[in-house]
Amino acid sequence: MDITVEQLAEARLITADDREVRVPATLRYTADDPLAVFVDFPAHAALHGEEVTWTFARTLLDQGLRAPAGHGDVQIWPYGRTRTVLEFHSPHGMALLLFQASALRSFLVRTYEVVASGQEDVADVVERGLSALFGGV
Rank of each mutant, 00 (worst) to 15 (best):
M1W: 09
D2K: 14
D2F: 07
D2A: 15
I3S: 13
I3K: 11
V5M: 02
V5K: 05
E6N: 12
Q7L: 02
L8V: 12
L8T: 12
A9Q: 06
A9Y: 02
R12L: 02
T15V: 01
A16G: 12
D18Y: 11
D18Q: 12
R19N: 07
R19F: 05
V21D: 06
R22P: 11
P24R: 01
P24V: 09
A25V: 01
A25T: 10
T26Y: 03
R28F: 01
R28H: 08
Y29I: 01
T30M: 08
T30Y: 04
L35R: 12
L35D: 14
V37I: 06
V37K: 03
V37Q: 03
F41W: 03
P42A: 02
P42H: 00
A43E: 10
A43N: 09
H44K: 12
A45Y: 06
H48E: 15
H48C: 14
E50A: 15
E50M: 08
E50K: 14
E50D: 15
V52N: 09
V52S: 14
T53I: 00
W54T: 08
T55E: 02
F56P: 03
F56T: 06
A57K: 07
A57Y: 03
R58E: 03
R58F: 05
T59I: 07
L60W: 01
L60M: 06
L61K: 00
D62I: 00
D62Y: 02
D62L: 06
Q63A: 10
Q63M: 05
G64R: 01
G64Y: 03
G64V: 00
L65A: 02
R66T: 13
P68A: 01
P68H: 00
A69L: 04
A69R: 00
H71F: 09
D73I: 04
W77V: 08
Y79C: 13
G80R: 11
R81E: 14
T82H: 13
T82N: 14
R83I: 03
T84C: 11
L86S: 08
E87I: 01
E87A: 09
F88V: 03
H89M: 05
S90E: 06
S90R: 10
P91N: 11
M94D: 11
A95S: 14
A95I: 07
L96Y: 15
L97Y: 03
A101F: 06
A101T: 12
A101E: 09
S102H: 11
A103R: 09
L104Q: 10
R105Q: 10
R110L: 11
R110W: 09
T111R: 04
Y112L: 13
E113H: 13
V114Q: 05
V114C: 07
V114F: 07
V115Y: 03
V115A: 04
V115Q: 08
A116T: 09
A116C: 12
S117H: 15
S117P: 13
S117A: 15
G118E: 07
Q119R: 14
Q119N: 13
V122Q: 12
V122N: 13
A123S: 15
D124K: 13
D124I: 07
D124M: 13
V126C: 13
E127G: 15
R128G: 15
G129M: 11
L130W: 09
L133R: 15
L133C: 13
L133M: 14
G135N: 09
G135W: 01
V137Y: 13
